[in-house]
């Protein structure tokens, strides 16, 4: 499949029956939003991975003698290429903090998304596949969860239990699974009534096999879209919690914390919140572009 004839010209049968893999490739690479989203996400991911090599300074290294240096584009006499993004109120290199901050955002985004994804998908598939009582119980759990305001509960829990990075991740993961559950439940309901599920049953497939090999692959596109939404959601919630002083603790270089620490100085040194804010904006935009792209590329009207 997808093989090109000797002269680099596709064979007749390929033109008549393009393989779904090559069609898919064409659709993915033709979708600019998806490409931009994936591209920026990969760049941010690479930055996070290579932070120790990329960052010019230790992000925690304070030096009051060099505090509040503005970024180079400010035109100020103090600006220097040594600190291209300037320094914060404690004299820490802002570029280094920004680079290390991507690690925290991505870690929180991925981990909270995974935790909530596992919880929500399990509940949703069970409710959608088994229906009846199971569905009633799951719906009750979902409604209970929806009746709790996420930020308030997160604040309460974090202020009671204390706040480390992993506590924040678990609290968020345990709170934001509702959209997974709702979307997976309704997609499962749709798929489970299709004839290929009945055929699998008639062949003698176990319930496990039906769920994992007939239903899951067919709700995967919806799942990926929700996963991107929830990843962005978790990153924003972390920033919000950190901004309120109940997320990641100083001196860790979380973007939310950077915004929080900069807010006292924002009238005279607006870049202190502008730079981490822009970074957060780019990351969330990239994730959302990727989610929308996945939805477009895998939409059923594109499939047949």
């Amino acid at each position: 499949m997808g093989m090109i004839g000797k002269a680099g010209v596709p064979t007749a049968s390929e033109i008549l029956e393009p393989s779904s893999a090559s069609l898919m490739r064409k659709r993915i690479f033709g979708h600019y939003g998806l490409m931009i989203g994936i591209g920026s996400l990969l760049v941010i991911f690479a930055i996070a991975l290579l932070a120790p090599m990329l960052a010019p300074f230790d992000p925690l290294d304070q030096e009051l003698s060099r505090k509040l240096i503005p970024p180079i584009w400010s035109g100020s006499a103090k600006a220097t290429w040594v600190y291209p993004l300037g320094t914060d109120g404690l004299g820490r290199d802002y570029l280094s903090r920004l680079i290390y901050g991507s690690q925290i955002s991505l870690l929180i985004g991925f981990s909270a998304m995974l935790i909530s994804g596992v919880i929500g998908t399990t509940l949703g598939v069970l409710a959608g596949y088994f229906g009846g009582r199971v569905d009633m119980v799951v719906n009750f759990i979902i409604t209970t969860r929806l009746s709790m305001p996420v930020v308030l509960v997160a604040l309460a829990v974090v202020s009671l239990v204390g706040n480390s990075l992993w506590i924040v991740i678990w609290v968020l993961g345990l709170l934001i699974w509702d959209r997974f559950a709702v979307v997976v439940r309704s997609s499962t309901l749709q798929v489970r009534n299709l004839d290929y599920v009945a055929a699998a049953q008639a062949i003698g497939c176990s319930k496990m096999r039906i769920i994992f090999s007939e239903i899951m692959p067919n709700i995967m596109n919806n799942l990926i879209v929700v996963a991107t939404v929830e990843m962005a959601h978790a990153i924003i919630l972390e920033a919000a919690l950190s901004f309120l002083g109940l997320g990641v603790q100083p001196p860790a270089p979380s973007w939310g914390l950077m915004i929080s620490e900069g807010k006292g100085l924002m009238f005279f040194h607006p870049w202190l919140i502008g730079i981490p804010g822009a970074a957060l904006f780019v990351l969330i935009l990239a994730i959302n572009l990727m989610g929308d792209g996945v939805r477009d590329v895998t939409a059923p009207e594109n499939r047949n």
Partner: peptide
């Protein structure tokens, strides 16, 4: 499953779109 098997009306919904023909036929 070895005794009785169905053939459905709509072959557009009776085959899992994510599986190859080979995978569908060998599944039993």
């Amino acid at each position: 499953a070895g005794l009785v098997q169905p053939i459905f009306q709509d072959p557009y919904s009776s085959l899992n779109p994510r599986k190859s023909v080979g995978a569908i036929i060998t599944l039993p």
